[in-house]
Design a protein around this nucleic acid. Structure first.
Lengths: 248, 248
DNA sequence: CGTCTAGTTGATTCGCCTCAAGTGTTGTGG
DNA sequence: CCACAACACTTGAGGCGAATCAACTAGACG
């Protein structure tokens, strides 16, 4: 499934067939990782960076005393550790489900950025997009109530999963615990639980057995003060069909 | 002073004289902007991005109802709007002091990224660094107390200003109001005031008339749980001397 | 069957917010 | 040169949102 990266990049620019081939060529042999694996270890220096091909994961920073902040959730097509290419990762990435990841050799990526301007531009876009998500989270933490923050998080997760074909109608598998949500929203576990309850009571969502069901999308958006613009999603999802077609 | 950009990039990689010339050539004629000017307008599309050559500014996002979140403070050498090059800015940048800014034509930058791999790499590093600061702020908002958060903010500001030669011993001009600090830390103005008072009472800082004086650096670092590693500062500041020498 | 983890609930505490009314301090125009 | 806005900062009182502490329940798994 290395086509996952291509599919995402594809949604960012227009490529020539040559570009496409180069991208396919860029990702090394996929590796399977069980759930809970540390896909990127904080502070570890490596020669590669990595793209998530299948599964879900999350990026996080953990303080000395154990307090953890989740920085983002990752879906197939996301690059786990852009920053490692140039500075070294200051965060960890942990698998939420069994995952498939593809190594992108550092040297090859640097070459392709130079040789293929269109591909370079697409990677820049991906990085800028990541930064934009980060900024939107900042707003949430700084200026939104716990209720809106959790709702916002769920909106974002749902749309990003839908974009890579991982939703089924209003449902999606979102295999996080309430503690994960708490660490993502900067809340305590107990309070996150209560927020989820009120989201349920308001008829906005169901969230059980790691499955999120959006019962009232307009309501959820309103609760979250959510504006999907910042996700820069293509009008059409990066469909599973296209992915496999290009991989074959 | 277009040398400001060169000086910062210089601290990130090693350049050939040709690279240097190309960078100098990249920045268009400097423009003077009075304090309070909107240097980057949220949502506005332009053909250029911009480097801050002199002065201080801040990046922010403002919600419909007026709540504002400051995303970062900018010092000379910082690029104001990387994201505008590839996606369009989802934030504003406002001048804190009178500023000098230099336009970087979009086309020229894209060319240089391709033609000069070393320069391209330096720009990537700059962007990754910006992302890393953002992540560190996230931790602050999510997992640090108001007291630690404000202290952290001041530590960061001080070191970044020192890095570009804008400190004088333990002093620096940091022309923000308490409201700015509040919006940066995700706090109310009133509480920020009280936090600053306790920082003063603990003998850590003085902050009056837009001047920050660090009275007890180890104390401030401890209060902030600050680890300067994430700033990736060069061991030696990007000195004013070097800047002017290279500009001349 | 017992253990482990995730989720739930209640009681209490506290950090931070909001409202409201001050005190400077700066700058501007009469 | 003084009066008075306008704005930054300060202080107090009161309330709320979220943290913390401490059980307790419910599945999941060996």
């Amino acid at each position: 499934m290395p086509g996952r990266l291509l599919a995402v990049l594809d949604s960012l620019t227009t490529f020539t067939p040559d570009d496409r081939a180069a991208i396919e060529d860029l990702v090394g042999p996929p590796r399977h990782m069980p759930a809970e694996t540390e896909l990127v270890v904080d502070g570890e220096a490596t020669a590669d960076c990595t793209v998530l091909l299948e599964g879900q994961a999350f990026r996080h920073k953990t303080l000395a005393d154990g307090r953890r902040q989740i920085l983002g959730f990752l879906v197939p097509g996301d690059v786990l550790d852009f920053s490692r290419l140039f500075l070294g990762a200051d965060y960890g990435v942990t698998a939420l489900t069994a995952c498939q990841i593809g190594p992108i050799p550092r040297g090859r990526l640097e070459e392709i950025l130079v040789e293929r301007p269109r591909v370079g531009r697409a990677f820049w876009r991906m990085a800028m997009l990541e930064a934009e998500l980060q900024r939107e989270w900042m707003i949430g933490m700084g200026r939104r109530s716990a209720y809106a923050r959790v709702a916002h998080l769920l909106c974002e997760a749902f749309l990003r999963l839908r974009n890579v074909g991982m939703t089924y109608g209003a449902r999606c598998r979102f295999p996080v615990t309430q503690t994960h949500l708490a660490d993502a929203a900067g809340l305590s576990g107990v309070h996150t639980n209560r927020v989820l309850q009120s989201l349920r009571q308001n008829g906005l969502i169901t969230f059980r057995a790691r499955e999120l069901i959006v019962l009232d999308w307009p309501g959820l958006i309103a609760a979250a003060e959510f504006d999907p613009h910042y996700l820069h999603l293509p009008s059409e999802p990066v469909s599973r069909g296209r992915v496999s077609a290009q991989t074959a």
